[in-house]
Structures are given as structure tokens and as C-alpha cells.
Design a protein around this nucleic acid. Structure first.
Lengths: 229, 229
DNA sequence: AAGTCTTGTGATAGAATTATGAGATTCAAG
DNA sequence: CTTGAATCTCATAATTCTATCACAAGACTT
């Protein structure tokens, strides 16, 4: 999913809310569909296959909980995020919502700005899991959290520049494996277009060695590099 | 991992969370056990030998960190994955957790779907090493992984230069078979054009003998060499 | 047992590859 | 527009591999 515009389905029986929320989301560039009750919501969900569904809990005809359960049964919508709208304090409905397969909930009264940022973060989170899961790598006294772009080495948090981080990520993704220079270029330097000089990898390896200790990065002459703990 | 149902132990002092998470995991077909504090958790871990343990950090009687340390001391649970539940932003507890031997952490508030997909990926990660052994040759205390360009000898990882690696690969590809000098030249030295002196193979064999022990490389006079375990 | 052929070994030269220091260039934040 | 970090380049030094040679050591023949 590159930058395809995310589709959002909004289900609520109050026209006011429908309009306000819809306006705000469209403003952010999302493609918004609406439905006025659970039943209609499920139907539109099937047809539009949205990336995110915002469900009001209390609705006539079919409430949000039930709608959510229905939607969760649709295999195509497996990766769709579902979030509820609940009145503040309605804890029970939040729990019931999670139970039905929801991913999050948004408290009423709705604050557009909060809503928008929540939607963004939900969509962002969903975009990840496709390609690479298992986002945390732990080897000896090195911890790498790809999601957060964060590295902890010997209990100290370290900040690495982009390239260095990517290179480290690659090497640690399979400790012990020797990565050929070619492989490294492909992954870290996007390989196809950009042509970087032959010594570039070495220089970056050097940086990593400076920061994380010499011993872990082994050179395999004529082949490439590998990481060992 | 065949389809043996994975066992998950869930440890948290809040009944709500226990219930929600438990429900979601059971729904995915996992066998779920629960405990309400660290102490109880450790006991159940011993008894049930789960594949994955989800530990809340903050708990009465014995907190998650301590529980984790205890569990890590149990040899039978060596391969059990441990993951923490931590409140967002509680960085210190994340680090402490890793320090205690955890494999991952899950941020609160819990999003059931996120949780489930994380659990899946964690269990998958653990199941991998058994299943896919593609180009791996194993003979006695020698393991050769051509893809990864990796050699493990008597449990030690060894780095071999290109030619030596290729020569070893060839010989071990059919243990016991005698490779004629001519054959070796063909495969390892691209054979057709390049002319290498007569003693070159011998010298490389010598190197291998130095590194991997004399006995495995037998000389067959007038013919070539072979590898035996 | 001496002769002949083949392999093992130590030393070393030549090739290839990588490490490093210094500096140019790019890029983004202020 | 500065400024500084990040990234990349390049020339040179340092390493490590490879291959070769000369000779020692075995093994097989006759």
C-alpha cells in the first residue's frame, strides 16, 4: 500500500456527527464513506473495503457491536481497522467493543483534531505489519526497535543516522549470516538506480564499529560482512 | 511447528485485561492459561510449559520483571518467548524488561488485533529455525550454510576465505566421494581457462586441514581428495 | 633398496580486497 | 543563509588471500 488514499467508512446515526467528522477527514485527504446504521455499515464495508471503519456504538437497526462482529467475519476485511465511538464513561461498551474485534475506540464528545490524529496513527500502524513483522531484534546487549527507530546498546540509548541504522538493521536481521556487498547495496542503497562508490559500505561499517564495538562486525574478504554477537 | 496448538500464558492482575486478551487469543485457536500475579505466573509456567508468556510489568506480589528473571532460570523454558505489557512511554520498564530476558513488549492500551498479530509473528519466529533448512549441510560437528556463507565447526562460527569455502563446499557436498583434481579445478577455479599451478589445490587443502582438523580430509593418491566425517 | 611419481610444507611474491584519513558534497534544521 | 551532521568519494595504507616455487616426505614400482 503505497500512497493510495486510505478509505474510511464512518457509521453513525446522527447526521451532525457524520457531517463534522466526514468534513474533517476529507480535509485530510481521505476518501470517506458514510452509513447511518449498523446494517448499512456492514453492506458498505463489503462493497467499499475501507481501510478503517469508525463505528458508533449506539445505533438503531443494528448497533456498533453487532456490526463489528459481522464485519470481522468477512475475510477480505481482515486487515481493516475498526474503531468505536463511545460516550465518555461507557466503559462497558468499550470492553464489549474490543471483544467484538475492535482495535481502538474514540471518546465522545469528538474533538476533530484528536480524531484526525488518531485516525492517522491507526492507519499508519496498519500499514506496517504487511511487510516486516517481528520488529524488535535483540542480540546480546543490543536491542533494535525498527518501529521506533531506536537502539539500545549496553542499556544506553543510541541514535544512529539513517544509513547506519538501516545497515545495522540488515546485518542484525540474520546474525551470523554473511551479507554480500551486492545484497547490502540492494537493501540499504535501494540498489537499482543509485550508484555509490565501492568504498561506501566500508565507511559505514567503520562508523558502526566505532559506535558499537569492533568485534561484532566481521569482515569476510571477497564476500561481505556479517554481524555476530 | 506442525499444528500443535501453541500454549500461551497470560499474567496480569487486572481481570478485565485478562478476559479481553484471553478471549481474543482463544478465538485464534491458542490454548490460554492465566495467572494474576508474578508468583502464580512462574508456577504455572513451570507446570504448563507454554510457548509464549505475556507478562504485565506492574503487578502485586511479584512484578513482571522479577517473574521474567525467575522464568529465565528454568532450563525447560529456555525456548519460551516472553513479552511484556507496558504502559506507553514507560521506556525504563521496557529496557529493564529486555534486561531480564524478555523478547518483546506490547504497549498498552492493548489493541486486540495488534496483539493477536504480534503473538502470531512471535510464535512464527520461534517456529522457523526447525522447518526451513534449505541449503544446509550437516556432517558430524560441521555445519555449512551456503546461502548464509556460514560455517559452524564444533559449535564455533568460523570464517573461511572464498576459495577455501568453495573447496570445502564441494568436498562436503558429497561426503565420501573422491573428487579428482581435475574436477576440483573445474568447480572451484572455473577450470576451463585459468591455469593454476599443480600444488595449488594441495595448499588449500592444507589450510582446511589446519582449520578443521586433519582427519576429515583424506588424500587419495593419484586421484584427488575426499571428505569424511 | 633405489627410482619415480605424487603429495605435504614452509616461505614468499603478487593480487585482491578492505581499512582509514581527509575532504567534498548533500541535506535539513535553525 | 549558516551551520553542522550525514553521506559519499578518493587516494593511500594495511591486511588478507592466492598462487607459486623449491624442496622434503611418502608411497608405489620394479
Amino acid at each position: 500500500m503505497k500512497d493510495a488514499i486510505a478509505k474510511i467508512l464512518l457509521v453513525d446515526d446522527e447526521p451532525d456527527i457524520l457531517e463534522i467528522v466526514s468534513y474533517n477527514l476529507k480535509n485530510e485527504g481521505y476518501q470517506v464513506f458514510t452509513a447511518e446504521n449498523g446494517k448499512e455499515g456492514v453492506q458498505k464495508a463489503k462493497k467499499k473495503k475501507p481501510d478503517l471503519i469508525i463505528l458508533d456504538v449506539m445505533m438503531p437497526v443494528m448497533d456498533g457491536i453487532e456490526a463489528c462482529e459481522q464485519i470481522r467475519k468477512i475475510p477480505e476485511l481482515d486487515h481493516t481497522i475498526i474503531t468505536f465511538l463511545t460516550a465518555r464513561g461507557e466503559d462497558y461498551s468499550m470492553i464489549a467493543g474490543f471483544d467484538a474485534g475492535a482495535d481502538d475506540y474514540i471518546a465522545k464528545p469528538i474533538k476533530p483534531r484528536v480524531l484526525v490524529s488518531k485516525v492517522k496513527s491507526l492507519l499508519r500502524r496498519n500499514a506496517m505489519p504487511k511487510g516486516d513483522e517481528g520488529n524488535i531484534i535483540k542480540i546480546g546487549d543490543l536491542i533494535i526497535d525498527k518501529d521506533q527507530y531506536k537502539i539500545v546498546f549496553k542499556k544506553e540509548e543510541i541514535i544512529l543516522p539513517r544509513k547506519e541504522f538501516e545497515l545495522l538493521s540488515l546485518l542484525t536481521s540474520k546474525p551470523g549470516k554473511v551479507f554480500k556487498r551486492e545484497e547490502i547495496l540492494d537493501v540499504v542503497w535501494g540498489g537499482n538506480e543509485v550508484i555509490v562508490g565501492g568504498r561506501t559500505i566500508d565507511v559505514h561499517i567503520r562508523k558502526l564499529r566505532e559506535k558499537l564495538g569492533d568485534d561484532s562486525f566481521k569482515t569476510v574478504k571477497g564476500v561481505g560482512y556479517k554481524y555476530v554477537k
